[in-house]
Nucleic acid binder design. Structure first.
Length: 258
DNA sequence: ATGGCTGAGCTACTCAGA
């Protein structure tokens, strides 16, 4: 089963790119972030024609997440955490893989910049609540897949120039420690698990030729609970969509589980 | 290298992104 995570930076601006991608890679499930639209304006039909059902937790202009799937996804939930600012940042659902029931948790973590503002506090509080709820979730189901735009640079290797980001909301030690705390609950960062020394990115700024210079960072992740490690077939950062016309600033990360 | 580029909402310009 192919599952992909992609921050599309507006689903409506990206319909052509997403359809081209689907044609090429034919994922079973797409976990999308930053769809930037309300549910009623989501392009359901475009994806339905290609065989995907869309489960949408939208928001006007900002944020928004969705699960597009060719396979059955049960128990869709949009209330994983109580978000004080009512931002649409998490959608979850359940799939079956052989005899295992796996909960998919699709997240768009707040950016948190600038650091000396309420935005940073909001990010910290959000992550704190998230980790706490994951702990609770693990009591009922130990087969969890957390995917999405974490807005966290896990380690120095995960950005083109760490010094520029060590005091940034994406790279601050305090934030990176929360990522480690999550891993310590019993998860693997699947990309890093499979690629111990490789330096690849999932995001490149639109400006200043960041893409051409490969000034990127790895902030989109798949976390899989330890007991699902045996189910991993492959993990791949697909850079091709970032090279296309009118791209998202993020590129898809692709997980295949068996 | 705190700039510059893109999208939404709206139709001039701000906000947000990372």
């Amino acid at each position: 089963m192919k599952i992909i995570s992609w921050n599309v930076n507006s689903v409506r601006a990206r319909v052509t790119n997403i359809l081209d991608y689907i044609k090429e890679f034919s994922p079973d499930i797409l976990l999308l972030q930053e769809i930037k639209t309300q549910d009623e304006n989501f392009p359901y039909e475009e994806f339905k024609k290609r065989g995907y059902d869309s489960h949408v937790y939208g928001q006007k202009s900002y944020n928004g997440v969705a699960i597009l799937s060719k396979v059955e996804v049960k128990n869709i939930n949009k209330d994983f955490i109580i978000d004080d600012l009512k931002q649409s940042r998490i959608i979850t659902g359940e799939i079956k893989l052989k005899k295992k029931k796996i909960e998919l948790i699709n997240i768009y973590v707040p950016n948190g910049n600038p650091v000396e503002t309420e935005k940073y506090n909001y990010k910290k509080d959000w992550i704190k609540k998230f980790v706490s709820n994951i702990k609770k979730k693990l009591f009922n189901n130990s087969n969890l897949l957390i995917a999405g735009d974490f807005n966290i640079i896990p380690e120095e290797i995960d950005v083109y120039d760490f010094k520029r980001y060590e005091n940034d909301a994406l790279g601050k030690l305090e934030i990176r420690k929360k990522f480690r705390e999550l891993l310590n609950l019993g998860f693997n960062d699947v990309y890093r698990f499979k690629n111990k020394k490789k330096q690849e990115y999932t995001f490149w700024d639109y400006f200043a030729g960041s893409w051409q210079k490969n000034y990127g960072m790895r902030i989109d992740h798949f976390l899989l609970s330890n007991n699902l490690i045996e189910n991993i077939k492959s993990i791949h950062i697909n850079k091709i969509p970032r090279s296309k016309v009118k791209p998202s600033d993020h590129t898809p990360i692709e997980l295949e589980i068996i």
